[in-house]
Write a protein that binds this DNA or RNA. Structure first.
Length: 262
DNA sequence: AGTGTGTCCTGTGTGC
DNA sequence: TGCACACAGGACACAC
């Protein structure tokens, strides 16, 4: 899509999770997509008009790539139901990009030139140099919230979700119930390292496919087979053989080993 | 500043 | 097989 103009934009409904921006189609058609990047869990398209289109897949969103310039080997392993085709981008080079999202937890937001966006004040990318033991420690300083909630807070570190927080805490041997501001220096150092490690391993495995997640080639990821604790309630801990527990924290499941994680 | 709850939706898996 | 129900990768609003 980079360097190519939007020839035709079709909206099959007035909203996803949020309503589409006013005059969405008119503001998109004819614009060239200058750069396509990612920040946290958001895709960002910079348009030649200077406006920015942010796209979030929510939990069930996916893009389908078709047309005469589509990657030859692009194909989803499970077909999408066309009744959830909500947005279609027809590019000037013949590529057709369709956004499909059964649950409609995803969204697209078109932000005017110079206007602020909700990503402006989020934390560092976990795989970047700005995220490390000392910066994590600084972000957690004085926090009374649980470390589980703190790591899901995008202002602390951007882009971690429920799965990888559970896995990183297990690898570090830290209970999800610990107060975030009371971790020791050695613990925040180790935690930052394990966060990077688990993300790198997951990316290497093509991501985690719980239901129908696909990576950017449309292929299923397989990191779910490498989970140590996520979704493994009642199974034995790989380290101590004790049972993996599940608790609910701020409405989300936390999986952990009560013996290894303190 | 925290925590907990509810909300937006549909699809899937489980248990009866 | 049919049905009811719990639960799901995220982010936000709101009450307390």
């Amino acid at each position: 899509m980079e360097g190519v103009r939007f020839a035709k934009v079709t909206l099959n409904r007035p909203d996803l999770r949020f309503p589409f921006a006013p005059n969405f189609i008119e503001r998109m058609e004819g614009q060239r997509l200058e750069r396509l990047t990612r920040r946290a869990k958001f895709l960002q398209a910079e348009l030649s008009s200077g406006e920015r289109l942010f796209m979030h897949l929510g939990m069930s969103g996916r893009f389908i790539i078709e047309g005469d310039t589509a990657l030859a080997d692009f194909a989803h392993e499970h077909a999408a139901n066309p009744k959830h085709h909500h947005v279609v981008f027809e590019m000037e080079n013949g590529a057709v990009i369709t956004y499909n999202d059964p649950r409609r937890f995803g969204f697209m937001e078109l932000i005017g030139v110079g206007a602020p966006y909700r990503l402006d004040n989020i934390g560092p990318e976990p795989l970047g140099n700005e995220f490390n033991g000392p910066t994590l420690r600084a972000a957690l300083k004085g926090k009374k919230s649980k470390i589980k909630a703190a790591l899901l807070d995008q202002r602390v570190v951007a882009g971690l979700g429920n799965i990888y927080v559970c896995e990183a805490l297990y690898r570090t041997g830290i209970s999800p119930r610990r107060a975030a501001g009371r971790l020791k220096v050695a613990e925040t150092d180790a935690l930052a390292g394990h966060i990077k490690d688990v993300l790198r391993a997951a990316i290497e495995a093509g991501g985690s496919s719980l239901k129908d997640f696909s990576n950017t080639d449309g292929k299923l990821g397989y990191f779910q087979h490498s989970f140590d604790v996520y979704g493994r309630e009642g199974e034995s801990c790989k380290n101590c053989n004790g049972p993996i527990k599940r608790i609910v924290q701020s409405g989300r499941s936390s999986f952990f080993c009560g013996v290894c994680q303190r």
